[in-house]
Design a protein around this nucleic acid. Structure first.
Length: 254
DNA sequence: ATGCCTCAGCTCCTGAGA
């Protein structure tokens, strides 16, 4: 079983790239973030045509998430139960017995801002919900655009970007709290290239200079850790014409 | 650098992303 996550920064713009990528990498589940379209504009037929089922949770202009899958989704949930949220950020379903949560974590903009406070509240709510989901579903994957780095190894300039957004102690404490639930960062289970990032700024030739951050993650439960055989960032789509600023991350389970 | 690029929208500038 293969699972992947990809922030595609507008499904309208990136649909051809998503279809091409799935043709080359026929994963069982692909979580998408930043659809940037309303539910009525979701191109379900394009995915049906290539043999994928889809769950989607869109929003005008911002956010929006989807789960594309070969198997049907069971027990689908949109956003975090009990957490009032105007923004479409979470989509959850069970596929072949594996509970999959696809999430677009808030950006947070700047420490001290209202958006940062929202990010912290959202992370609190997510953690408590995932804690309960893990009890009901021991085989669980939490993947998406976390907008948080684990540590300096995930940042191209850890000194210059110290305590800036995605790199603050407060955000990293929240990320570690998810690890504390019994989840594992699947990328680090396997040898990786030096300076292994998943996002690069569009500006200043950041990708070419590999000035990036690893902010897209696939966290897996203990029960799945024993099934994990590979996990890596696929940088190739970032070299496309009109690429997303993020690259997909792919996990292989036995 | 309050800069750089990209996308959506009440679109020809602004807000947001990260």
């Amino acid at each position: 079983m293969k699972l992947a996550t990809w922030n595609i920064n507008s499904l309208n713009v990136r649909l051809p790239q998503v279809l091409d990528w799935l043709a080359a990498h026929p994963v069982d589940v692909l979580a998408l973030q930043e659809l940037k379209l309303t539910d009525d504009k979701f191109p379900v037929q394009a995915f049906t045509d290539i043999g994928y089922q889809a769950q989607w949770f869109g929003q005008k202009t911002y956010n929006g998430v989807a789960l594309l899958s070969k198997a049907p989704a069971v027990d689908v949930i949109k956003n975090i139960p009990g957490f009032q949220d105007e923004q479409s950020r979470v989509l959850c379903g069970t596929f072949d017995g594996v509970r999959v949560i696809g999430a677009y974590f808030p950006n947070g903009q700047e420490p001290g801002s209202d958006k940062f406070a929202y990010k912290m509240r959202w992370l609190d709510a997510l953690r408590e919900w995932v804690r309960a989901e893990l009890v009901a579903h021991p085989q669980l994957v939490l993947m998406g655009d976390y907008n948080i780095t684990f540590d300096d190894a995930d940042v191209w300039d850890p000194v210059g970007l110290r305590e800036t957004i995605h790199c603050t102690t407060e955000e990293r404490t929240h990320l570690q709290a998810l690890i504390g639930l019994g989840l594992t960062d699947s990328v680090r289970l396997f040898p990786q290239p030096e300076k292994n990032y998943s996002w690069w700024d569009y500006r200043d030739f950041a990708f070419r200079r590999n000035r990036g951050m690893r902010i897209d993650h696939i966290l897996i439960s203990e029960a799945l850790k024993t099934r994990a055989t590979a996990c890596a960032v696929d940088k190739l789509p970032r070299k496309n014409e009109r690429p997303s600023d993020h690259a997909p991350v792919v996990l292989t389970l036995s």
